[in-house]
Amino acid sequence: MRAAVINFPGSNCVLDMYYALKDFRLDAEIVDANQENLDGFSAIFLPGGFSYGDYLRTGAIARFAPAMKGVAKAAKDGRLVVGICNGFQILTEAGLLPGALRENAKPGFICDEITLNVANPDSIFSSAYDKLQITLPIAHGAGNYYADAQTLASLKAHQQIIFTYEDNPNGSLDDIAGIVNQAGNVFGMMPHPERAVDPLLGNTDGRAFFQSILQRKDLLTHAD
C-alpha cells in the first residue's frame, strides 16, 4: 500500500509524519500540494504546520490547493485521510470533517504534552490502544474545536468523537481533540501522534495510532 504525506507551502511536520510511517514499514512518499491526482494512494496524511502562513484562517488557503481535489476524491472513495494539527484544520475548512477550529480560548500558542482519553476505542484510528488514557504532544494556536449544537449531537450519535482532552487546554467544545467523519475513513486531531513513536524521544503513545491503521489491511490494499 502507498501512503502520501502532502507537503503544503508552510507545512513543517512533513518529515515527522514521513519517518513515523516509514518506521511502520509503510510505503510512504512526500507529495507536493500541487499534485492533483492522488489515485494511487490508499492513505493520505495532511501534516502539521502553518500552510500558506496561516493567512486568512488556518487551513483556509490550503483547502484550495490542487492536492485537495485528490484528497476529496479519496475521502469519497472510502480511502483513509488523516489530518494532524494543521491537517485537521484543513479538513474542517474543506468540509471533509464537520465543525471548525478557532483560535485557542486563551489566545496564544500552546506547546505541551497533554493527557487524552480514547473516547471511542473501536475506530480505524484507535482500535490498537490497550489503555483509555494516553499522553501526546500538542503544538497549536488554533485548536479550539467548535461545532453547532446539531453537529455536536450528530458527532455523539455516530460515535465520531475519538479523542478528548482530560484537561481541556484550548477551550474545545466538549473537550474534543479528534474526530472522524460519519463514514469513519476521514480523521483529524490536534495532538501529534507522529511525534510520539520513538522511545528515544520519551513517549511512544502515538504508536498505537499507527498500529490501529495497520490492523485494517482490508483498507490498505487499494491500488497495490
Partner: peptide, 8 residues
Amino acid sequence: ELLININM
C-alpha cells in the same frame, strides 16, 4: 466561499 468560515 473564502473570506469567512461559515461555521463560525
